[in-house]
């Protein structure tokens, strides 16, 4: 029987090489492209009518819009308006990617650490640049907890710096590990269904059905968590404390 990790294998569909670097169009790239088409298409289509009384699709688009707008309003405040498009895109990209990954035999590109790490790292670098451009060198005061006595600084500042630097790691690993664990678990339990056969196979089948529901919830939740943490990091960069 195939390994539960087999589903994460990258398979080249169209081999492409630019400047000696392999940038082949793979199953991962295909899912990303599908994410763009479905995610972008859904929202664009929902936006296209612009009716005073929205239909079903338009309502979905407006709910997504209001959801992210509310998230930004609550975490960053009114200053967060200009970061709305990028946070909305992040959310949609991860959400649709995770959801498409729930389809059997498809591929979950968010289950690859390199993908989640690049996204988290871009968020991290972006927030750091934002912090320096807002506050200049004063941004370093972010690493001094407010109200802490001076003699504690030698201890607190390294802790704060490490915690700040580990942000992209925690942000990327959280999404990657959730996807990896969830899909691996589904695959392992699916293997039990076949191993136990007709006699007792229905038991893991019930379990896998319930877990699929849970995984769909996690697929949404992780996209939400990624978006809300990005908002919090932007808020930290804007307000320092």
């Amino acid at each position: 029987m195939a390994s539960p990790l087999e589903q994460f294998e990258i398979k080249t569909i169209i081999p492409i090489e630019i400047g000696g670097i392999d940038v082949s169009f793979t199953n991962s790239s295909l899912m990303m492209a599908l994410t763009v088409v479905i995610g972008g298409g859904l929202v664009a289509l929902a936006a296209s009518r612009g009716a005073m009384v929205p239909g079903r699709l338009q309502t979905i688009g407006e709910i997504l819009y209001e959801f992210i707008a509310g998230l930004i309003r609550e975490t960053i405040g009114p200053d967060g308006r200009k970061y709305f498009p990028i946070i909305f895109t992040l959310f949609m990209f991860i959400l649709v990617g995770n959801m498409l990954g729930m389809i059997p035999y498809s591929f979950t590109f968010t289950s690859h650490i390199i993908v989640t790490f690049v996204m988290a790292f871009v968020v991290f670098i972006g927030c750091t640049i934002l912090g320096f451009s807002r506050h200049g060198l004063h941004f370093f005061s972010f690493f001094i907890p407010p109200g802490a006595p001076v003699w504690m600084w030698p201890l607190l500042i390294p802790i704060e710096v490490i915690s700040y630097l580990s942000r992209p790691i925690s942000l990327s690993v959280r999404l990657f590990a959730n996807m990896l664990a969830g899909h691996t678990m589904l695959k392992v339990i699916a293997g039990f269904v076949f191993a136990l056969g007709l006699l007792a196979g229905w038991l893991p089948l019930l379990l896998i059905t319930a877990l699929t529901g849970l995984e769909i919830l996690i697929a949404f939740l992780q996209a939400y968590v990624f978006a809300i943490l990005t908002c919090l990091y932007i808020k930290d960069a804007l307000e320092l404390h």
Binding site: I10, T12, S24, F25, M32, A33, G39, V43, T89, F109
Partner: peptide, 23 residues
């Protein structure tokens, strides 16, 4: 390299669609 490349491409395209057209 391939994953990062396609990630950047698709993310930028999605950003442009959402930011410039849909939102």
């Amino acid at each position: 390299a391939s994953q990062v490349f396609w990630l950047v491409v698709s993310f930028v395209v999605l950003t442009l669609i959402l930011w410039r057209v849909a939102l």
